[in-house]
Amino acid sequence: MADDVLLRLSGVHTHIGRYHILHGVDLAVRAGRLTMLLGRNGAGKTTTLRTIMGLWRASAGTIAFAGQPITARATPGIARLGIAYVPETMGIFGQLTVRENLLLASGPAGLDPARLARVFAVFPVLKQKFQQAAGTLSGGQKQMVAIARAIIEDRRLIIVDEPTKGLAPAVIGQLIEAFQALKHTSTTILMVEQNFHMASALGDDVAVMDDGRVVHTGTMRDLAADEALQARLLGLSLASHQ
């Protein structure tokens, strides 16, 4: 199991200003699997993702990607290793068109027609909105652009922060289908998600955070089957994820 770890965080601490947010995070993301990072609000999930991307600096501990330390690397250098980051709040460039958003995430050769066709197959609506300013799209469509940007090129790891936040149930269903399609390509994904229905539908592995630490790791299937564990780790009741 240790050999197929693509991303490993060991004892990672992060300070934001005078606040100590992460208190020694240990996390292993296995290649070709979708790892769900769960936890209550304020547990440190987003900070963990941002620390991996170098947007916040780890004050202690190490982060290794494919065995290579990336803790001290600048964000662009981390992204160039083949890590795509889809931030929460639909991290698109609103003044640019959908096409330009995708071009920004493409390599120097520009948009590959085959990959573009794959994106359109997953999100057909983006084909109609291709030349439209991304800022004028609906919330769900913006999220689709953000995800499309992550998959328009081959990535070794895709990091996604709460893709369903603020979206309508119909759009969430579409996103679940999109990520299921992505899973079939054996792409490694690390995802933060509050929607337990989505998390249990997609997750292979799970890590649960609390108070800036990972307090549980295992398979998503085991967590989904154990309501007592869910209640203890996430404060979930049966009713909340029906």
Binding site: L55, P76, A79, R80, F93, L96, L104, A105, R149
Partner: peptide
């Protein structure tokens, strides 16, 4: 528009 986002794309 967003320098952090651009950095996260590798720029």
């Amino acid at each position: 528009e967003n320098a952090f986002r651009a950095e996260a794309l590798g720029y």
